[in-house]
Design a protein around this nucleic acid. Sequence first.
DNA 1: GCGTCAAAATATACGTTGTAAATTTATAAT
DNA 2: ATTATAAATTTACAACGTATATTTTGACGC
Lengths: 201, 201
Amino acid sequence: MPRTLTAEEIEDFRDRLTDAATRLFAEKGRDAVSMRELAGELGVSPMTPYRYFKDKDEILAAVCIRAFDRFSDALETARANATGSAMERSSAVGNAYIAFAFANPHAYRLMFDMAWGQEHKYPDVKRATDRARKTMTAHLTPLIKQGVLIGDPQLIGHAYWALLHGAIELKLAGKLTAEQDFDAIITDALTALTRGYSPKD
Amino acid sequence: MPRTLTAEEIEDFRDRLTDAATRLFAEKGRDAVSMRELAGELGVSPMTPYRYFKDKDEILAAVCIRAFDRFSDALETARANATGSAMERSSAVGNAYIAFAFANPHAYRLMFDMAWGQEHKYPDVKRATDRARKTMTAHLTPLIKQGVLIGDPQLIGHAYWALLHGAIELKLAGKLTAEQDFDAIITDALTALTRGYSPKD
DNA sequence: GCGTCAAAATATACGTTGTAAATTTATAAT
DNA sequence: ATTATAAATTTACAACGTATATTTTGACGC
């Protein structure tokens, strides 16, 4: 009988390949990295990755999931380390969101490019997304409980999410010029949105 | 002496090819349409488009510019046809924005995918973007003049832009589930943002 | 009208891609 | 040691964008 790969060996290979893919995608973008280059990075022949991943998309999905998890980690850490009022701690989460996106633009883009209407193919992507969603909305509950913000936490969370995501995408896509400064826009818009969700006066 | 193409003939071919590309990209997405298929659509050999466009990216840029122009047209038409208060007419522009994005998801994505940090290569893309930017902010000026909204029109315009764009991208990327309904989110968020930019009570 | 010359169009070809299929290598059980 | 087979590699293929080579075409001087 031949040697068979253990679950740990499989997991280890997948991890190493996902790490390499994450690094290379971050440097050059998704389409600029070939399967051959990816395999070469691990010192194996071009077809070996296909024993561990169905195809390139599945590797992409793994990178996407990892990115979402690092993202969630970053937000949770930011919140855990933040001090001050509930509002200040929530701001720290927002800042961490922005910092992650600009520190990892390719990964950030991949997180929202994966699937495009076929996310059902990779349920783990959905799981990672849902974790991030919870992370992004959880910190709002205290604010609403305290009456600092008024409304449905889910709706408020997604409003902030959409605003941050949109501003970041505009910036990454080069749609904001020097005059349309990202920091000025996001500061102003976050202030307005927060004011809109605040109680009267 | 051989026959040489007139400026109109060149323009005509470019138009026809851009139209075909727009249609095919809309159906199948950018990467699913090959140069060979594109040429076949016009009944010419695979290399003929290269006499009229430098490469596939330049065709993409042309499609992107056309999309931005149709987009600007749609917003301007919506505003021109809208009746009621300045606020109601601005809402019509927002609705037209959303309608365009969901009616032309691939074109919409292409508008914000083009370039990614190398938009300087296609100055016409920037021109088309700037027209859209003006269209999106122009209708806010009356609102500010009337005191319905308070703030810098550029900043307010980009806040709405970011919010709409972000929510649309989240929806198109499949990040909003049934429970996280797009209409509920965008309605709530737009209301809050508008309230945030409104004078005190 | 006819050969001529260059623009326009096409045909061919190349390197690269993702990956299917065929082949080789390596190892656990007999 | 032989054998069976998982794992890895090699080979191969179709499709891609496009560079280069070739053919077609039509306006000009004669």
